[in-house]
Amino acid sequence: MKLIGMISIFWLFIVLVYGTSDFSAWGDPESPCNLHVSNYYIEHAMSDTSVPNIVTAILADYRGFDTMFETAVIFSAGIACFFLLRRPKYDAPEAVVFRHIQTGITLRIEKGGRLPKESDEFERIDTQWVPYDLVIQVTSRILVPFIQLFALYVVAHGHHSPGGGFQGGVIFGAAIILFAVSNTLRKTTHRVSEKRSAVLCAIGVLIYAGTGVCCLLAGGNFLDYSALSGLLGVDPVTARSHGIMMVEMGVGLAVTMVMIWIYYNLSSAGKQHEGL
C-alpha cells in the first residue's frame, strides 16, 4: 500500500508539475489573472465603496454573497459538531469530585449522592485535576481583556487596515478559549452558556442576511447596500461603507460564538460538565 501510494503520488507530482509549464512567471504583473477582473477592483474600490482596504471591499461588497455563505459554512460546522457530539443533559456524570479548599481533601461523590453547595469551602474540580498554576492563571487573566480589546479594534478597523469580521471574531473567540484553557470549562460555560453562544451565532449570521434583506426591501438587489442610503441618510457610496461595517459586525459575532461553541463540544466530547 505504501509503495503503491508513493508511486501514484510521485506520478501525480510529475503530471502536475508538467501542468504548470504554461503558467506565467511568478509575480508577473502581466499574467492574465492579474489583469482582467482584479484591476477593476483596485481602480474602483475607493470610488465605489470608499473603503481603502480592497480585500474588505471585495469580501463584503463585490463578493459579499460568498462571504455570507462563508459564515453559513462556519455556522453549519458549529451546528454539525453540536449535532454529532452533544450528550443529552440528563446524561449526568458518573461521579463528581469536590475539593475542600481549606484542607485540600478531595471528595468523590457517586451518582445519586448529595452534592455540597459550591461556596468558599467546597469547589467542584475535574476528575483529572491539575493543581492551579498561579503564573498561567494570572497571566491569562491579565491578557484576556487586552486580547478582546484588540479583537474589537481588528473588527472596527477592517476598512483601513488588514482585519475584518473573521479575523476579529477569531481573536475574540481565542480570548475566551484562553480563559477556558487556563480556568475550567465550567467557569467558562457559566459566563457564556452554550445556549447563548449558539443563539448569538445564529443571530450573527442573521445580521448579515438581514442586512441583505433590508436592501431587498429598500428596493435594491440583495446585498446592494447603496439601496440603504435613504434609510441611513447618507450618499450611496458611504452607504456601501456602512453596509460593509454592519455585515462585518455580524460576521464577527458569528465567528466568535461558533469558535466557543465548537470548543465546548470538542474539548469535552459533548459532555460539557468537564473538559480541558
Binding site: Y62, G64, N221, A227
Partner: peptide, 9 residues
C-alpha cells in the same frame, strides 16, 4: 447580487 454586474459581482 449586490447590484454588481458580472464578472465583478
Amino acid at each position: 447580487i449586490g447590484g454588481w454586474a458580472p464578472p465583478w459581482g
